[in-house]
Design a protein around this nucleic acid. Structure first.
Lengths: 133, 133
DNA sequence: CGGCATCCAAATAGATACTG
DNA sequence: CAGTATCTATTTGGATGCCG
């Protein structure tokens, strides 16, 4: 900080950029945050298209919560609810194209999650205290 | 041996891998999920090191919640709480090295958040109904 | 099977006041 | 400034039963 004017300008840009990032991340978390949404999308992507299949894959989710999440995901164009006539009527959830935009997010979270689990394990065997994952 | 592109959103054949992905993503969400943690990390990364600075940047967070989140982040090695003697005592939060592992996660979320906001805007001006971000 | 309605318990968060 | 304490309001979620 030798030149104060520059410093101010720089800091202002820095600050504005911070707000941009924060806003973007907040937007993302608003749309796909929470415990379940991404996991539901992943599990549908991997071929679990029925309500009960999804519920089995996404460990710990209750029917009520799953039902609500599916509605929201459909409303936001991440998935499509397909009803096929017949007896009984068959209902399947499929990914809508918009879910493909989540590729990078999902894969980075997956990579991070894997290394994080490893790190936790290392921390514990090296004797550090740690909250459990 | 880079895999065949973590094809998250396609390829029903890889269902056996589904559980691995779900577990990894669940781990990640457990550690950095929720409304605030990433935003706090980002805002510290961009030079907001004081409690009140962070609170100002991370819109909507209360002192109590911020306080709790900071404690958790410190416990999990994402940040360091630095106390500098003096009068009054100065307290600053800094990123710990482990926060750097979040680079990809943050940048993909940021990119996605930006395009998502744009998409919402487009949807609205084209007359679709939409939940608001 | 794929849900929705209801009731109730638990977790979370806001407001406010207060401290070193 | 950097929190803590307390109380209360709100949200969230599980359990259960019912229905097409």
């Amino acid at each position: 900080m030798k030149d104060e004017k520059d410093a101010i300008v720089v800091n202002k840009e820095f600050t504005e950029e911070c707000t941009v990032i924060l806003t973007a991340v907040a937007d993302a978390l608003y749309a796909i945050g929470g415990k379940w949404k991404l996991m539901i999308i992943i599990s549908i992507a991997r071929g679990n298209n029925r309500f009960s299949e999804i519920q089995k894959k996404v460990t710990g989710i209750s029917a009520r919560v799953l039902s609500n999440e599916l509605k929201e995901l459909e409303l936001n164009s991440f998935i499509v609810r397909k009803v096929t006539a017949g007896y009984p009527v068959s209902i399947e959830y499929e990914l809508a194209p918009y879910s493909n935009t989540l590729q990078d997010v999902v894969s980075s979270l997956k990579e991070w999650g894997i290394q994080h689990r490893q790190k936790i394990k290392d921390d514990r065997s090296s004797g550090k205290s740690q909250t459990i994952v």
